[in-house]
């Protein structure tokens, strides 16, 4: 069959170009409005991002022009990682902190949110009290915790001693409570990193509020159906609440992990800006800061920063991969959707 052109008005050039022209006009109108943000984004985010990648292959001290040194900075990082020197120590400290603080904050956040969702008298007061710590500025809360966890005069150790429990060294100790070899060495105790984990739980209110909102969104019909099927409170929590919360848990897991890997302010304050004692609080972000601004090794610091960035990307990617197995989306993705 031979197709012929349909009769009727042929499209003119005006008709073709007018939407394009309109879009161009709109862009010209929009540009001045977004220009301040765009300018800031380009100069404060895109430029440093690209520049730091270039400098990570350079030797650079800010005063002299950068000098290309190939992969020397990355080789130094690999060497320090293998020999357990500063970078290796920083990776270990960061991993220890992130792997403890993130899961604990999820468990605590979900637990508190579930309890706060119960219809009890004074519910609003409890919610306010538990959320309040997360609005305290991080510098203030860090100094507060330094006092609370002072091994000699701190309130926490005083209370522990009243009930006859051992009093840890907290920020003054290199001990690692969660590291199994320490359990059998006779030197077990809570050290500086454990104290940082404890501090991070203090700000769990932010996560808790998100869980609380998500719990409020779970349809009551699901609980009613489960109850009719004979499910008790624990089964309802396990088979209804947790799966329905899983997208929010996943979001908090990813965000918490990123924040934990980038932890700086509280670490700087409690560690005398040096990762003290004996490098036990030397986290990756603090190591970037010291290398760049104390020792003026901008190239090396950029290499650490990029390694950190790749670590975050890899961790996030791994979490997304596993999320298919345990995150339930009502919209049709993830587990719980068959066929």
């Amino acid at each position: 069959m031979i197709r012929t052109a349909k009769p009727g008005p042929q499209p003119t050039s005006v008709n073709i170009s007018s939407p394009t022209r309109r879009r161009g006009k709109e862009l010209l109108t929009v540009l001045p409005f977004i220009a301040p943000w765009l300018l800031g984004f380009l100069t404060l985010v895109v430029y440093p991002f690209v520049a730091s990648l270039v400098w990570s292959f350079d030797r650079y001290d800010m005063l002299s022009p950068p000098e290309y040194v190939g992969t020397a900075n990355y080789e130094r990082l690999a060497d320090e990682l293998v020999t357990g020197q500063r970078f290796g120590q920083a990776v270990w400290n960061t991993a220890y902190f992130a792997l403890l603080s993130v899961p604990l904050s999820i468990v605590l956040g979900v637990g508190l949110a579930v309890m706060l969702s119960w219809q009890v008298r004074g519910q609003a007061v409890y919610r306010t009290i538990l959320f309040l710590p997360s609005v305290v500025p991080i510098v203030a809360s860090s100094i507060l915790w330094l006092w609370l966890l002072d091994p000699q005069a701190g309130l926490v150790n005083y209370l522990l001693s009243l009930v006859g429990l051992p009093t840890p060294g907290w920020f003054n100790s290199t001990a690692e409570a969660a590291w199994p070899p320490g359990w059998f060495s006779g030197q077990w105790g809570f050290g500086s990193k454990d104290a940082l984990v404890l501090m991070s739980l203090w700000g769990v209110g932010n996560f808790m509020i998100i869980y609380l909102a998500a719990i409020g969104d779970i349809p009551l019909s699901l609980y009613e159906a489960a109850e009719l099927d004979g499910a008790g409170p624990l089964r309802r929590f396990w088979h209804v609440t947790l799966p329905m919360l899983s997208p929010v848990i996943f979001f908090n897991l990813v965000m918490g992990l990123i924040h934990a890997i980038q932890a700086f302010t509280q670490v700087y304050i409690v560690s005398e800006g040096q990762g003290a004692p004996a490098g036990s609080t030397l986290m990756l972000s603090l190591y970037v800061f010291l290398s760049a601004f104390k020792y003026l090794q901008m190239g090396y610091a950029s290499a650490i920063a990029w390694t950190m960035f790749l670590l975050v990307v890899a961790a996030t990617w791994a979490l997304f991969r596993t999320s298919r197995r345990w995150v339930y989306y009502q919209t049709g993705r993830g587990i719980g959707v068959r066929g």
């Binding site: 091994p151 000699q152 060294g169 003054n172 100790s173 001990a175 030197q187 003290a276 004692p277």
Partner: peptide, 9 residues
């Protein structure tokens, strides 16, 4: 070491 660290820091 722990006693020295915690006392003098």
């Amino acid at each position: 070491p722990d006693q020295v660290a915690r006392f003098r820091k």
